[in-house]
Design a protein around this nucleic acid. Sequence first.
DNA 1: CTGTTAGCGCATTCAT
DNA 2: ATGAATGCGCTAACAG
Lengths: 319, 319
Amino acid sequence: MQPKLRDIAKDLGVSTATVSNALSGNGRVSVELRDRIRAKATAMAYSPSLQGRALRTGRSGVIGLILPDISNPLFPAFAQSIEAAAEKVGYGVLIADSHGNTDGQNDALLRMMRQGADGIVIIPRRGTRMKDLGLPVAVVDTPSTPENSASADHQDGGRIAAQHLQDLGHKKIALIADSRNSSVQNDRIEGMKEAMNPDTEYCVFWQEDNRRLDFVSLVAEGYTGFIATSDLYALSALTQLQRGGISVPGLASVMGFDDLAFSAAIAPSLTTLAQDTDQIATHAIACLTAQIEGTAPVQKVVVPMTLIKRDSTKAAPET
Amino acid sequence: MQPKLRDIAKDLGVSTATVSNALSGNGRVSVELRDRIRAKATAMAYSPSLQGRALRTGRSGVIGLILPDISNPLFPAFAQSIEAAAEKVGYGVLIADSHGNTDGQNDALLRMMRQGADGIVIIPRRGTRMKDLGLPVAVVDTPSTPENSASADHQDGGRIAAQHLQDLGHKKIALIADSRNSSVQNDRIEGMKEAMNPDTEYCVFWQEDNRRLDFVSLVAEGYTGFIATSDLYALSALTQLQRGGISVPGLASVMGFDDLAFSAAIAPSLTTLAQDTDQIATHAIACLTAQIEGTAPVQKVVVPMTLIKRDSTKAAPET
DNA sequence: CTGTTAGCGCATTCAT
DNA sequence: ATGAATGCGCTAACAG
């Protein structure tokens, strides 16, 4: 059995309250006694029961993390960052998968409340209005979402990407996105459009609309640059081009977003825009703890994306 | 404020004990009263505080999941499966990242115990002896690990892979693995070796030993088949070959393990050996709940891997 | 400065 | 069949 406050109190002939005070440092306890108590506590390997404390204080020391789809290749990085940031400030992390739909998201929220989570970090589905649920919430999405607490600047990321290819002399660029349903992807595409020079030709291809895109034909039509809203689609484009005998970056440049696990490992390595998940996570957690602990609210934060130049982008071929 | 047992008891003029009994179904409560209580409970949207219950029963309804490295592209799938399996039997999942080392793993274990986890699912680092920590544990690793509770049959997966390429007529095969430090990878390689015909040439390339492998040269040396212990390395090989002008699967076949997110999306799509993470997770959770609830212990389980034939493997080219 | 008391929400005796 | 009393481990308020 784990030692309790009572055990160490009885051993020293003092009250549990005094032990509690001595350990938490809150109390008015003589330095001498405090040290004796602390020594004893370490000797007995005492570790307070967070359950007892939770019942008393109403705070469990656990926060919930709700992801739309854990298996999405970007979320692991987030989960890891959130876990690290939470641990650093003494919180545990309970995960849940909303299975991409609003019902699942609400279920997850409910379960976390019942489990006694002190707050929630949520990466929402688009269109989910965060109804106020009397629990601190930090939303990680994109700056254009009103409730957003912390996120990367996806739109500016789009600008940087489009600028990069244009700087390399590309004049006809294909933008590849998955679903209009994602605020993040929409913002990235918007940013790209904004940064386009008047004389640059471009077209957006939403994968949800089309059957599988034929990138080789696009090159035949004169496209030399490809920007995908995720490294996953960039990889798909890159391998399809290679297979069709079109050298990357010799004849076409390809870039993506998010610097996924494989992006540096492929040949050619993939130029991409990365988000600083650690910084975003740290900030989201700061938002949450500020709400939980009632300290001054933390400003919303937008973290810039950074261009990682690798081998898949190069000057456009001479026409 | 959330309604408590007391609120509903007071409203109905009965005692909290009766309400508790009525709701849990344990008690000797008249059917009529029981129904009235239940109706009231639903009406008030009562949901028991798991914290109070935890303190009383010693069970929190939370299990811990310790991963060596959340950002490893395979683990998301596991995390998702574990979360789903746990939810199905009414448990929440607390995650922790052991950062790949033993210290981190122990820290994580300690934190989970303090948080009151009822049990732990752990994917261990190799060589970690699971010291008995008085808490139910389910280990997910590989059958050759003694403590293993549930896992895929990695060795047999290796056999299937080697057999697949040999069936296609490949006579000289390169086996690519990352680190001897991983039991899983070792077992996969062992299985491949076992299944090799006497007249098949093969060689194991451990990436930890070498600088970046030159796959194009290997083809020049006569290798026509490549089996990597992870789709990540298979992808690296595939793109390198394509870039070197070697058609896959025309001149060389490539296959991997784990059916990662990108494996179906690339061109050519990747032949791979998949593990049934849902089944493994369900079983790991069953092991755990059996221990937690003191029911009959569950047998260890080994789940077969399944070959997913895609476009990256084909009959060996005529010599 | 220290100890006593009370009660967080629940499930479980034991008495009625 | 139901209710009153108890205590899980802890901390906040109050006495001493």
